[in-house]
Design a protein around this nucleic acid. Structure first.
Length: 451
RNA sequence: GUGGAUAUAGCGUAGUUGGUUAACGCGUCAGAUUGUGGUUCUGAAGAUCGUCGGUUCGAGUCCGACUAUCCACCCCA
């Protein structure tokens, strides 16, 4: 009986046909990040459990019920990272990079893991693009991060479909005052709140604000607003940020309900929201976390960052009819008739590849006609049939599969002659470069505007 | 953890008020005169109808349980 092995719940296979859209998003994000002066960083998939408990917060849902934690030999416990920031901050501290010249700017693309019930736009293994900046407390840094995310979405053609919401949750001082004000406001309504909100009232009153139960919403509608409690420093920071964004022409909505579920945020928090991919509309989230580096290392280094979910971004992209085609790679298919000719095809394919071409030949023992069909299906640019006649005369024909045109070619000078036929301009087989990709996408968005 | 929906060949679907060999499209494979693609035509392979149990002379079709998936709550990317 065949074993039925299924992929774990909440995971996804990314198939060859899906790769073009993934590469588009990954490459474009990387190009933009590097334009902003960010360099790529890669950190381990698992970290010491304590790192997440201390950074994400020991009362957060992520830490209390969504982590994949394993115990290692000995007494150590490790956790599959539920988000990217903590590990990156740890790496920056551990490798001394936070002491290099400020600002330090890094970006990353990494899988993350959270044990939740899967649904549209929510997986147990998901991929994030993230960027973090260390050493600047200027609101220009906040704007820089937001502008960078904004630029990526614009370049992907999603400008009109993703909205930016921003808020400030203040520093520990003014937030503490606000928290007291919230408690004072909700306390009289305690019995009317939903059970989870009753708990929140004691543990994290801020979270009361984005409860979706109608009763809580109703009560919360009259609650005090964080923005009214900001200290002068935090208020000034937020005002400047709004001005800078306005200068950039980046549209935003001030949304006092954004509080974020990760404990390390201070001052600026923001989300980019797509309203067409189901209930999980937050494509991108981020903010400032000025105290996290200090809590983990003692060094007072202000920092901020953001992350977006590649799956959610791709969902948004697909919902707007963006098409991603697989680019055919095969330059030449060598069709064989019989074993002697197949041997010749195999050797020729090897030489072609060494000369930089993508070459294929029959590996399953098909007849000539099915081989032609196969060559057509994989999008081979050229086909050469090599049978007994060609082996004797040493002469064959190269067929251009899109035009049907045939050109004679000598088997004993195959590589050179094929290079001239297929490669008159001197080389086009390189994978697409970042610069090229950016140019292509830039050109596309411009032409779209004209239309 | 809590709700709701769904479960038929590799994929997408049809299967009327339960009735004999479960249908169609795509895909796969093979042919349509001698060694040649994209169209068309013909044919073939491929399904214990999610699993287990029940009702019935008879169940893909009704009932129950289980499992899985999806959607939503929650949370967040």
């Amino acid at each position: 009986m065949a074993l039925k092995i299924k992929r774990p719940k909440g995971t996804q296979d990314i198939l060859p046909a899906d790769i073009p859209k993934w590469r588009t998003v990954e490459n474009l994000s990387g190009v933009v990040a590097e334009q902003f002066g960010f360099r790529e960083i890669r950190t381990p998939v698992f970290e010491d459990t304590g790192l997440f408990v201390r950074s994400v917060g020991d009362t957060s849902d992520v830490v209390t019920k969504e982590m994949y934690t394993v115990s290692s030999k000995g007494n150590d416990t490790f956790t599959l990272r539920p988000e990217g920031t903590a590990g990156v901050v740890r790496a920056m501290i551990e490798n001394g990079l936070i002491h290099e010249g400020a600002p330090q700017k890094v970006y990353y693309i990494m899988p993350c893991y959270r044990h939740e019930r899967p649904q549209a736009g929510r997986l147990r293994e998901f991929h994030t693009f993230g960027a973090e900046m260390f050493g600047s407390s200027s609101p220009y840094a906040d704007a820089e991060m937001i502008l960078m995310a904004h630029t990526i979405f614009e370049k992907l053609g999603l400008g009109g479909f993703i909205e930016l919401h921003i808020n400030s949750i203040g520093c520990p001082e003014c937030r503490a005052k606000y928290r007291e004000a919230l408690k004072a406001f909700f306390e009289p309504h305690r019995s009317e709140l939903c059970p989870t909100c009753q708990e929140r009232l004691d543990k994290n009153p801020l979270r009361l604000l984005d409860c979706k139960s109608p009763e809580c919403k109703e009560i919360a509608s009259g609650a005090p607003v964080m923005l009214d409690y900001l200290c002068s420093d935090c208020r000034e920071h937020f005002e400047q940020l709004k001005d800078i964004l306005t200068d950039y022409g980046v549209k935003f909505t001030v949304d006092p309900k954004i509080v974020r579920g990760l404990d390390y945020y201070t001052k600026t928090v923001f989300e980019f929201i797509s309203n067409e991919i189901g209930a999980q509309g937050t494509v991108c989230g981020g903010g400032r976390y000025d105290n996290l580096v200090g809590e983990l290392s003692g060094a007072g280094v202000p920092a901020l960052g953001f992350g977006f979910g590649l799956e959610r971004l791709i969902l948004t992209l697909e919902n707007h009819g963006a098409e991603f085609e697989e680019a055919p790679t095969c330059d030449i298919y060598l069709a064989s008739v019989g074993e002697d000719s197949r041997r010749k095809c195999a050797l020729l394919a090897d030489q072609l590849r060494q000369s930089g071409f993508a070459a294929e030949f029959d590996l399953v023992g098909r007849g000539i006609k099915p081989q032609m069909k196969y060559a057509d299906k994989i999008g081979a640019k050229y086909v050469c049939v090599i049978g007994s006649e060609e082996l004797e005369s040493l002469k064959a024909k190269i067929r251009n599969m899109s035009s049907g045109e045939e050109t004679p070619i000598a088997l004993d000078n195959f590589i050179d002659e094929f290079s001239e036929i297929a490669d008159p301009d001197g080389g086009d087989t390189e994978p697409i470069s970042h610069e090229e990709l950016l140019r292509l996408l830039g050109a596309e968005t411009e032409s779209e505007k004209k239309e």
